[in-house]
């Protein structure tokens, strides 16, 4: 009886999560695949993808998605690393900053987008502040389609603010499981802060960096609400196009094709990170 309970127990504990994931994630993914690869009669087809590529916004959406990724991911990882290293020094009052840094985690991305809209808009906080300080004579149009670099910059700032916290939390957690002896050994053997970070901390942090990069890149491919709030369709992104095809054009098939494309990119990125940051078998101790 006891043996039976023990063999069933782990599965019963896993069951709720499995059911949840199956119903809300696995099933919809397959449905999306079906939508993307099937005609209305249920036959296999690639026409949805042909239509997607022929879409006028497709090239721009692809371009801006990758541009955002290229700017945001490195910026966030560096920023989050600096923040995590700072918190990890446990300076006086570091918990206060930890809470401040982690605050955006609690805010939904659409809400974040609206907050930044309130900041960057023509009569927003930034413009009125600069105006009151006498730095501006009339409002600067951050969010104008006529000034794409400015508009794009606001996206990077807003996204960085919103999603750096999760990267920092992952890196900080990674830092905290590294035994302090390694840092102390580096200190005793003559490493200054920079050398210690480069030659000891970063290599030991590699597993966490890998996780952070994967999660952050997946999120970057999925950037949506912030872009929608700040740039509307002036700067199209892949997920935004999926949304438009589904909600505005009522074409679930092309929307699914966009989603599938995002999924493929995500998988490729994950595989690349795993290969680049892999611990060699020798280092891991398997000869």
């Amino acid at each position: 009886m006891r043996v039976r309970t023990e063999s069933i127990l782990p599965y019963s504990l896993l069951a709720p999560t499995l059911i949840f994931i199956t119903l809300l994630i696995v099933v919809p993914i397959f449905q999306a695949f079906l939508l993307a690869f099937q005609t209305a009669d249920g036959e296999f087809t690639l026409t949805q993808f042909e239509k997607m590529i022929a879409d006028t916004s497709f090239a721009d959406a692809l371009k801006f998605t990758f541009l955002l990724l290229i700017f945001i991911v490195p910026a966030q990882v560096v920023l989050a690393l600096v923040m995590a290293l700072l918190i990890h020094t446990r300076f006086k009052g570091h918990t206060f900053f930890l809470y401040i840094y982690a605050l955006p985690l609690a805010i939904s991305d659409l809400a974040a987008g609206i907050v930044w809209l309130a900041i960057f808009t023509e009569r927003g906080f930034l413009n009125s502040g600069l105006f009151q300080l006498g730095l501006l004579e009339r409002p600067f149009l951050f969010l104008s389609y006529q000034n794409l670099p400015a508009l794009f910059s606001t996206l990077i700032i807003a996204e960085s603010w919103r999603a750096t916290a999760i990267v920092m939390v992952i890196l900080l957690a990674g830092l905290q499981v590294i035994p302090r002896d390694y840092f102390e050994a580096a200190d005793v053997f003559g490493a200054n802060t920079l050398k210690r970070t480069l030659f000891v901390v970063l290599p030991l942090l590699r597993p966490s960096l890998q996780n952070a990069l994967i999660i952050r890149t997946i999120f970057a491919f999925q950037t949506f609400a912030v872009v929608l709030a700040l740039a509307g369709r002036v700067i199209p992104v892949l997920t935004g196009e999926a949304y438009n095809w589904y909600a505005l054009n009522r074409n679930a098939n092309i929307a699914a094709a966009y989603s599938t494309l995002v999924l493929i990119f995500t998988v490729i990125a994950t595989v690349v990170y795993f290969r680049l940051l892999r611990t060699s078998t020798a280092e891991a101790g398997f000869d």
Binding site: D181, E184, A185, V188, F189, G190, N192, P203, L204, E283
Partner: peptide, 30 residues
């Protein structure tokens, strides 16, 4: 003075041998 300026060497209880470096690079670290 900071540890690195004290001209000392130390053997740690946990050894603190860097797992990401080869034996050569570990010994050469300082």
């Amino acid at each position: 003075l900071a540890p690195r300026d004290r001209k000392i060497a130390m053997v740690f209880q946990s050894y603190a041998v860097f797992p990401h470096l080869t034996v050569f690079d570990n010994i050469a670290f300082g």
